[in-house]
Design a binder for these strands. Structure first.
Lengths: 192, 192
DNA sequence: GTCTATACGGTGATAGAC
DNA sequence: GTCTATCACCGTATAGAC
């Protein structure tokens, strides 16, 4: 049972993931939810309020789905696969890019609070990845794992964008496989 | 000596690279160039016309700067470095993301002709990279090099986005270094 | 909570004078 | 080529009735 407020956030999330912050209007949302735009303003006075709520919920959900960076029984490979899998699923279930990836590209137009929320999403992702990677110390020193974390994050975001553009999920598969292969290469290299 | 038409394209390119297709208006352009919006419409009747001209010129310039995928005296490493370097320079000289990376994220809102131009930019990039990588056959089979090409492209686009968001060029450095390291790892692995 | 009505600026685009 | 003037519409946002 979802109240109108939740429906509005749902609708806004889909629209931002399709066309970004400037790609939707209160009237669009109102039409989809089945109310008038003035009613949307009742729940979220300004567009900034709405976008911020969307960004924060998205981040919370994403981090929750991510879970612990290195749970019992996991391997670095399984963690990388888990991470990539979230992007795969996000694309498969919506055909759309990552919300924060979309918003990242609009920095200059973003209200400050929304911008900060996006930055904190990126930081959280890199930190999670760094922990997931850095715990294995075969050839993985801390500073290196930061760079590897950034790189995995970037390649998946880029892949989401290309996948949405061409309507082709193989971009994400390529990024996911490359992340895994790269890991194996490094481990082998270190143990040689 | 640049005529007004060129100035308009210059201005539009900067604006698209900042805020995307929906992030600029004819009046914005007019103000920057020092004419009225009606005069902009004289040069480019519709927004689609203008965006298409910007996208095509950007693609042409980028491919020209790229040059041959494997010129005399080049090594796979030098080609990867050359490719990454273009992104570095693009960011350093403008602090902005890649034009086609920006437009990729707005597929749903893009006029069809512009969308096709962006897709052709992406295709050309992957093809160039594939040739630059695929000519070295130490452990690089053709299908693998396609995946590696996609992955290098995606990670640099993602890095541009993150760099613009955080105003920090190290994202691009990380992506560039990872691309190089990955190549070395694969060669070493193949020759072991 | 939702509505109608409305304010008011921005937007792509055009007609016609110079 | 560039201008002024104007169009019809869309954007965020608000006031006040129900």
């Amino acid at each position: 049972m979802s109240d109108k407020r939740t429906e509005i956030i749902d609708s806004a999330e889909n629209m931002v993931r399709s066309g970004g912050y400037n790609g939707f209007s209160f009237r669009d949302i109102a039409d989809e939810v089945g109310i008038k735009s003035a009613s949307v303003h009742y729940h979220f006075p300004t567009k900034e309020d709405l976008a911020l709520a969307v960004a924060i919920r998205y981040k919370d959900n994403f981090l929750a789905a991510l879970g612990e960076p290195s749970p019992e029984g996991s391997t670095p490979e399984s963690r990388i696969a888990h991470y990539s899998g979230l992007f795969q699923t996000a694309f498969d279930t919506s055909g759309r890019a990552c919300l924060c990836g979309m918003l990242s590209n609009e920095v200059v137009l973003l209200p400050e609070s929304v911008k900060q929320a996006v930055i904190s999403f990126v930081d959280a992702n890199v930190e999670w990845l760094q922990q997931a990677l850095g715990l294995d110390d075969k050839g993985q020193t801390k500073p290196k794992s930061k760079e590897a974390a950034q790189w995995i994050y970037c390649s998946l975001q880029g892949a989401m964008s290309a996948a949405a553009l061409t309507n082709d999920r193989t971009w994400i598969e390529a990024a996911a496989r490359s992340a895994l292969e790269r890991f194996y290469d490094r481990v082998e290299k270190a143990s040689n």
